[in-house]
Design a protein around this nucleic acid. Sequence first.
DNA 1: AAATCTAGGACCGAATCGGTCGGAGAGGAC
DNA 2: GTCCTCTCCGACCGATTCGGTCCTAGATTT
Lengths: 170, 170
Amino acid sequence: MLKLTKKADYGLIALCHLAAREFRGAPVASASAKDIAEAYRIPLPLLSKVLQKLARAGLLISEQGANGGYRLSRSPRDITTMEVIRTIDGPIILTHCFTEHEGQVECTQSALCPVREPLRKVHEGVLRLLTGISIADLAENDPQFPSIQAMVASIQPSMPTMPRLGSETP
Amino acid sequence: MLKLTKKADYGLIALCHLAAREFRGAPVASASAKDIAEAYRIPLPLLSKVLQKLARAGLLISEQGANGGYRLSRSPRDITTMEVIRTIDGPIILTHCFTEHEGQVECTQSALCPVREPLRKVHEGVLRLLTGISIADLAENDPQFPSIQAMVASIQPSMPTMPRLGSETP
DNA sequence: AAATCTAGGACCGAATCGGTCGGAGAGGAC
DNA sequence: GTCCTCTCCGACCGATTCGGTCCTAGATTT
């Protein structure tokens, strides 16, 4: 549940790398798959596939030939993490009910499934969280990621008993 | 990514069913696995396993023998959806970096991975969202799930360009 | 004692994920 | 013009997991 695939991870890292280059005003804003793979110890052929997918989706521009590489197609501030994850991992699914077709008999009688609608709300919340974070937000990792910090902090549990967080990630 | 397994789905449905029974002041607050399975068209042996897991985790109390069944161990308001999902699907993982061991060489040199910390923030946000929603919230599906609605609405994207939502779930 | 229910392990097919290999073109460098 | 580098793209594979089934054992009520 809620596991980013390594491919999506790699994609985010690569885009982040390119964005950081752009920010630093590097002479060349592009980088080859090999460069990125070596920089982060990512298996090259795997990263290549991810970058190809991103290029096909229009997020990256590929330049072939010697000294070629990949380049962001637009400002890193206009690329959301959602977009990246979705193009690599496919559509984001919380429950199977409202993302798959409607061939199932059991799901058409909506009276059966009491959790479908509430979960849809949760789904929407996560989507909103991810669309609110751009590659640029990831790239400027200076202070404490103020914008992301603010977004996450804005989620106020409606429960009286406030559960402690962080126990998940030791 | 962010896919609830069907087991977790079934678990939420079952707990929701029990909670709703309790709310309605049913004479018997417990229900057998067979009852629930038939009510929602869930394969019985699969649901049984899920319920067993929930019982072992202390969320449910099992009563064996004829006329036995499962019963909530505490108030549905004190059971979070996070708890349920975690006991069924295991720990929630966003990236592999900070949930798995530390045997990997590439992750110990944290300077390499520029997205680890930002993603951790996202992870925390999702956790907070799920811990803020109780089984009771799911069960009282009357008006428009006001509490969940409020929580989701509180997530304010920090981006200037507000992306349209809902395109994910047609 | 019989019926009914949970407990729990063994098992299986299918899908997916991480990862590899190899060949085909395109564009600079010399 | 030739070579080298680099992207592109499809095929392939092993391991894991997920959804689902089957069967046996044990507890409780009637």
